[in-house]
């Protein structure tokens, strides 16, 4: 599973990395080519209403969407690791405070909050700001799961041994807990990235994204806004969907594979 997932993501990354060598990315701008062309040899993915070549749009847009996911995932995960470890390892009042906050915030629907934030700063949204907006909610779930994992690890024999051997808290966290949690954290990170991409595409499909960057979500937004569906311009929406599905399934497979590494118990089941 892990290998299949990595292959899919690699494929997507290579597409974005090598694409500019073969295709002129300027064609991703409006008015670059003839609008409303079906897929053909000249335009393998067709062109949209505004005359963007969709192959070029994808070559530019796929890495942008991946960037939003990775940025937001990294920010969210870093916060999550920090808060999760603090909360799980320190316990006491800090733990109560962090856990309480996270549990309360988790009951609030993420997309709605993002809509509210994004619509307030709509004009200023760029790719990076988009990532930050999404990241503002991406830390809660990691915090919660990492905390509970640290909590169980803390009681394990080797951590107790390390304590008896006179290691201090920071050493225990870095030398004992962290390495042991690594596959688990990697799976969590993959999930966080996946969630971030899902949220950003969702926001963008509502029109709350970077207006001048052809991310996957924005491409879908334009397709919806200009009724691509009813006008039979299937390539306009089907192609970004294909890429999104490829990224989602790839990340999901990676996360599931890493999860298996982290809990050998689950292996039997699969």
């Amino acid at each position: 599973m892990l290998a299949a997932g990595i292959c899919m993501i690699l494929l997507v990354v290579l597409f974005g990395a090598l694409g500019p060598i073969f295709v002129d990315t300027d064609k991703a701008q409006p008015l670059a080519t003839t609008p409303r062309q079906e897929p053909s040899w000249e335009h393998p993915f067709g062109t949209d209403d505004a005359g963007r070549d969709l192959l070029a749009v994808m070559i530019v847009g796929v890495p942008l969407t991946m960037r939003i996911g990775l940025l937001a995932g990294t920010v969210g995960m870093s916060l999550g690791v920090f808060l999760g470890f603090t909360s799980g390892y320190m316990g006491g009042k800090i733990d109560t405070a962090i856990r309480g906050t996270v549990d309360t915030l988790l009951t609030v629907p993420g997309l709605v909050v993002l809509v509210s934030i994004a619509s307030t700063i709509r004009e200023e949204i760029s790719v990076n700001i988009m990532a930050l907006v999404v990241a503002s909610l991406a830390w809660m779930w990691p915090t919660r799961t990492i905390r509970s994992q640290v909590l169980t690890m803390r009681e394990r024999a080797y951590v107790q041994m390390a304590k008896l051997n006179g290691m201090n808290n920071r050493e225990i966290i870095w030398k004992e807990l962290f390495p042991n949690l690594l596959p688990y954290l990697a799976a969590n990170f993959t999930n966080a990235v996946n969630w971030a991409i899902l949220s950003s595409v969702g926001l963008e499909a509502l029109g709350l994204g970077p207006q001048n960057d052809p991310t996957l979500g924005m491409t879908i937004y334009w397709a919806i806004t200009f009724s691509a569906l009813i006008r039979g311009m299937w390539w306009w929406w089907a192609i970004p969907i294909f890429f999104i599905a490829l990224i989602f399934v790839g990340l999901l497979l990676i996360a599931a594979g890493l999860d298996e590494l982290a809990n050998p118990k689950q292996r039997k089941a699969v």
């Binding site: 595409v201 969702g202 569906l229 299937w234 999104i244 599905a245 989602f248």
Partner: peptide
Amino acid sequence: LMTLSAIPPYLLGLIVLY
């Protein structure tokens, strides 16, 4: 089933709609 769950419903929506 896992694949289905990974695709957001609005994207599935576009496909069934088409």
